[in-house]
Design a protein around this nucleic acid. Structure first.
Lengths: 196, 196
DNA sequence: CATAGAAGATACCATTTAGTATTTTGCAAA
DNA sequence: TTTGCAAAATACTAAATGGTATCTTCTATG
């Protein structure tokens, strides 16, 4: 029971890497079993289909990672504006898991699978909503503790900020470098200051 | 020479629609010739390969449309802040060419083709840069004509705004409705007001 | 009208794809 | 040690893919 779980996770991790780099559709099951050194029999023993594995990647790999890297850091600092800026800075500049040339895995999946794969849309929506709700919550909290102006609309600000993150990832991917990240981050800081 | 050009454009337009909806990789040449009612011989008479056609779509269809819908409107009004907001509002809420559930074609192409198809990246980068440069220019102009605060950094603001647009498209796609567009647009207006 | 070349039609190919059927191995409990 | 099942290996299939070779039809110009 232990070894089997290991091969399953091995498949998921390696497949995630491949899909993050090349995309879901262009990563074939044959690609995956070639790089994992796992046979097709083993693959289809662990997963009913390619899509079944794709969903497992999101649920078992992406979701926990996302929670750790995107959601939890939001709750670390007292001033939510600091939390938000630090999060974005770290995600874009420091996170060694996320590569500039491959964009954001959650965003890539959304772009590629939505709107045609309803199951994928669903779990991706859950993923995203966790992030949204957390950011809304810390902004509301920040309004109460006077870090943020009472007139600020938390939902609006959240959507505005998160859109920016997803969008700037696209620029990084397109230009294959982090040059675009810097002006974005500077202006994000300016914008956050207007919320005080 | 006239009829041939018509079939060529017919292929490009229909293929663009299919790819905009389903993605490039999942749209097969067989799909395209089926919906265009054009035979494979005709298809490969006009295009060396599928990728050759893909590039033609960007250069001959997407680029002109993009210039008309994204770039030119930026130069219409005297106050660049008005131009920007009106552009975004129209792109998201009124443009009948862009469908919320399918996202932004330029963004979709970027996500799917970059970084593995260098030729695609190149033309998409040109496309994007035209938009960036134009927005920077009108902001600089706006600073001179006192519509915009002199302390504003045009490049920063441009990257910040455009990221937001690309990102919010992703939200619309994910949720398959325009609900997320409204808070985004409201906050965009707030943000633009801070640049005065 | 004649005809050359542009434009399009048809049938096919080699490869790749996701998925399956069948067999073999490993290992834990009786 | 035997047995039973979990896990993995092997060999295959049908369908779809991008692309090509060859043939036919249309059309502009002399």
């Amino acid at each position: 029971m232990k070894k089997a779980e290991a091969t399953r996770l091995n498949i998921l991790h390696k497949a995630f890497e491949l899909i993050y780099e090349k995309g879901y559709q262009t990563t074939s099951v044959d690609d995956i079993i070639a790089t994992t050194q796992v046979t097709k029999g083993a693959f289809y023993y662990h997963f009913k289909s390619k899509d079944d594995m794709g969903l497992a990647i999101i649920n078992d790999i992406l979701k926990p990672t996302f929670t750790n890297s995107f959601v939890k850091p939001l709750q670390k600092e007292k001033n939510p504006l600091d939390s938000i800026y630090t999060l974005m800075y770290n995600l874009l500049m420091n996170n060694e898991f996320l590569k500039v040339e491959f964009g954001c895995p959650a965003s890539n999946f959304t772009q590629e699978m939505t709107p045609w794969h309803a199951n994928f849309s669903k779990v991706l929506d859950e993923l995203t909503n966790e992030w949204i709700e957390t950011m809304i919550a810390i902004i509301e909290k920040g309004k109460k503790s006077e870090f943020i102006n009472k007139s600020v609309n938390a939902k609006q600000v959240t959507m505005f900020i998160m859109s920016g993150y997803w969008g700037i990832r696209n620029f990084g991917k397109l230009e294959n470098n982090k040059n675009a990240y810097l002006p974005y981050l500077k202006e994000l800081k300016n914008y956050l200051n207007t919320l005080k």
